Amino acid sequence: MSLTRRSTLGLMAGAVFAPSIVRAQSFPSKVITLVVPYPAGGPTDAIARFVAQDMAVAFGHNVVVDNRAGASGAVGTRAVAHAEPDGYTIVFGNNQTHGNNMFLLKEPGYDAVKDFAPLAGVGAFEHAFVVRKDLPAKNIQELIALAKADPGKLNYGSTGVGSGSHLAMELFMQRTGIKMTHVPFRGAAPLVQEIVAGRIDIANSTLPSVLEQINAGTLRALAIASPERNPRAKDIPTLREQGVNNADADSWAAFFAPVKTPDAVLDTLSKAIIASLNKPETREAILKLGFTLKVRDPAAFKPYHAQEIATWKQIITEAGVKPE
């Protein structure tokens, strides 16, 4: 090949790749949209807004939180999967949007792995085993014994079929060999109300949804389904401390961008998000929500994500939960 032809090809290649390089170097140059696929006002929304505020300061451009709820988080997540992969539309997802929906929805409209690039793992809402205050079980082993004495007699509540609280309890029952009867509710508020009223025996709920009632003594906590105790509920032992292993069930959360977003842009977004999550004021605000921070960069989050998907796919299959 002649020198002239090589030079021409080099110029052509430069013309092809230069725009993406320029875009990456100048990113961001306008408003970024951070999609939260749930209604405004909840803890997930609050975390997103804390981070968005820090990112806006760091970038010098607004980061607008866009709540797009519906279909177990699939509506907003799908919108980001099909958005322009330029870094200006990202999503704050979780174990439902970027995990269980793959197996619980017939048509989620996206692939949680193939369509997204992780920006940062944030941590998780831990699950707590809570029981009505007069249930004759003071710890997890006593609960297991009570359930085995009369399989199916105890009932447990969840926030809906296929929800985190449902699948977390399915995991627990599979690991301990017990059987209880499932009673689904439309959200955490009615579930907690029924446990406090004594009409539901037990639930495996996210800690923020039951912490107020635990502190008030209107229900009792038996265990935290996480490797370590929660700093806001230090008196509640973990499942592992009580002899139950491989039954932890954290409701994790993470930030994602469309998969074809340029690497340099992904890196810029990732660093800004991680810097926010490591900021003392932001960490304190998030911890007050009952959320446990465990910040992971993309390289650390990918294997964690893969393991979570594999675990819950197995649990969903063995529990016989059918896609809707």
Score class of each variant (00 low, 15 high):
T4M: 13
K148V: 11
M169I: 06
A225P: 06
A264R: 09
K302L: 15
K153W: 00
V36R: 04
T97F: 05
N278G: 12
A257Q: 02
A319G: 07
N245C: 07
P298V: 01
A216G: 10
V131P: 06
P108D: 08
L289F: 04
K294A: 15
E142D: 10
R199D: 08
A145P: 00
V36D: 06
A117E: 14
K271Y: 08
F17C: 04
M180P: 05
G121N: 04
S7H: 07
G198S: 05
A275I: 04
M173G: 05
A168C: 15
N67Y: 01
G162A: 09
T4V: 14
T97V: 05
A128Q: 10
K294T: 11
I236N: 13
S209H: 08
P39A: 02
S276K: 01
L191G: 05
R199L: 09
D115V: 02
G70T: 02
T8F: 14
L222T: 14
F129K: 00
R283E: 01
A253K: 10
V80I: 02
V16S: 02
V210P: 06
T176A: 03
V36N: 08
K322L: 09
N246Y: 14
V192N: 10
G99A: 12
R186E: 14
V16P: 03
R283W: 09
A52R: 02
M55V: 09
K138L: 09
T311Q: 15
P303M: 06
R49G: 07
P190Y: 13
K106R: 14
L11T: 14
L287K: 15
R199C: 06
E241K: 01
A253C: 13
L104T: 05
T4H: 13
A145S: 08
F301S: 02
G123R: 01
P227T: 09
S165H: 07
F172K: 02
S26W: 13
R132K: 11
R229H: 08
K260L: 00
P190F: 13
G73V: 03
Y110D: 00
Y88N: 04
A299N: 12
T181H: 04
P190E: 09
F301H: 06
A149K: 13
A203G: 13
H127W: 09
A83K: 00
V75P: 01
T8N: 10
G187C: 11
G152M: 05
K133N: 11
A300S: 12
G109S: 03
Q96H: 12
S270G: 08
G41T: 00
R229G: 09
